[in-house]
Simulated assay, not measured.
Amino acid sequence: MDTVLGIDLPTWWFLLIGALISGYGILDGFDLGAGAIHLFFRKEDSRRIALNAIGPVWDGNEVWLVIGAGSLFAAFPLVYGTILSVFYLPFILFLVAIIFRAISIEFRSKEEMKWWRKLWDISFCLSSIVISLLLGLILGNLIQGIPLNANHEFVGRLRDFFNPYALLIAVTVLSLFMMHGAMYLIMKTEDRIFTRLTIIANNTSKFFILCFMATSLATLIYVPHMTAIFKNYPILFVLPITAVLIVLNIRRSIEKRQYRRGFVSSAITTALLLILFAMGLYPNLVLSNIDPRGHISIYEAASSDGSLRTMLLFAFIGMPLVGTYTVFMFWTFRGKVKLEEHSY
């Protein structure tokens, strides 16, 4: 098998797709979180300011999801096909929610009627919550495994997705995004909405820490395969310990009103949790909870070495460009949000 810098090509793509998903979780996470807490703002100006805080960046943040999905299709087509077929209905709901979220942002300010704006406010909030919960639901089922037979065929039922562990992960993802979004909005706002957001950030951070503790305990008890790597390589315990310290630093930052540091800490937390998820799966991408022969590893699912090598070259060129564009976008729209004539 071909290698690059001593790492085999499937592992390179495993790492690259993980980086793309982490980028999406960090960037679109605060957009979704801002939407999930949108109805906590009662004043019209506050809701408009919140929308304008994410207005210039939300659609660009979703590029990371598109690239991640495209990379999964190109590098691991078997996994792409299996995941889409297994989570067909959740993904359809996910796409519908993305559509309604987008049109809610764009349609809200097209008319002055209160009922019109309230309708799209509710749509924006609910679609953001649904997307967050669906992402967590899919993640939770991938962590504990899905019912695949030896031929990688789904033999479960829809209600199997709504198991207690997956629902716990869904709520944890939502709580993380709400906290992440609240701290992003704090950095972009001032005056009355700033004060309101400090209260929301304080409450959502407490909610996330409770969910984090419950999820960690449930994973240790009910999903032991996710911790097997730490028994084999004790040095890796530094990662979950670091995750706990970063989560505690979020609370410390909020109490000291250091919201920029808190936002960075919540971004690092998102990345660390996804890293721990990837470490628990590797070298598999999909686990079967009924037949070990149903597991799909990166080596079994990978495209040909020639395809992986060629795409890797384009990835090494394209990813820095996307990263540069993202940095430029945030730098261009830095600073506090002010309402203007053409604001949302």
Rank of each mutant, 00 (worst) to 15 (best):
E106D: 15
L148V: 07
W115C: 03
W120C: 04
L168I: 01
M183S: 11
K118P: 00
L185W: 09
P164G: 09
G136V: 10
N141D: 10
F124C: 12
G145T: 07
V130P: 05
L176K: 15
I131C: 14
P164E: 12
R101M: 00
A150S: 15
V130G: 09
E106T: 01
H152D: 08
R159W: 08
V173T: 11
W116P: 03
L176H: 14
I105D: 06
L168D: 02
A102G: 13
R117G: 14
I143S: 08
L137C: 04
P164H: 07
W120L: 12
F124L: 08
G145P: 05
L135V: 07
F177C: 00
T189R: 14
L137N: 10
W116V: 13
L134I: 15
M183T: 11
W120P: 01
F107T: 05
F107I: 02
K188Y: 02
L174M: 09
G181N: 14
L185E: 00
I169F: 13
F154G: 04
Y184M: 05
P147T: 00
L133M: 12
I122Q: 12
I131F: 07
K118C: 10
N163D: 15
I103F: 10
D191F: 11
I186P: 04
L176T: 10
N151P: 00
A182Q: 07
I129Q: 10
S127A: 10
V171D: 01
G136K: 11
F161V: 03
C125A: 14
M113C: 01
N141K: 05
F100K: 02
K188R: 14
Y184D: 04
F154L: 01
M113I: 07
R101W: 05
G156K: 06
I105T: 15
R157V: 11
S109I: 03
M183Y: 05
S109N: 08
F100D: 08
W115P: 02
D121P: 13
K188F: 08
A150N: 10
M178P: 02
Y165A: 00
I169Q: 09
G145S: 02
L134A: 12
R192Y: 09
S128K: 01
D191M: 09
R101H: 11
I131Y: 07
L174I: 02
I146C: 02
M187E: 14
Y165N: 05
E190D: 13
L142G: 10
R101C: 03
I138Y: 14
G181C: 06
L119R: 15
S127M: 04
R159Y: 07
T172Y: 02
I186R: 11
G136N: 06
L185V: 13
S128F: 03
G145V: 07
Y184Q: 01
D191P: 00
L167D: 07
T172C: 12
I143C: 03
G181F: 06
K118F: 10
L176G: 13
L185R: 05
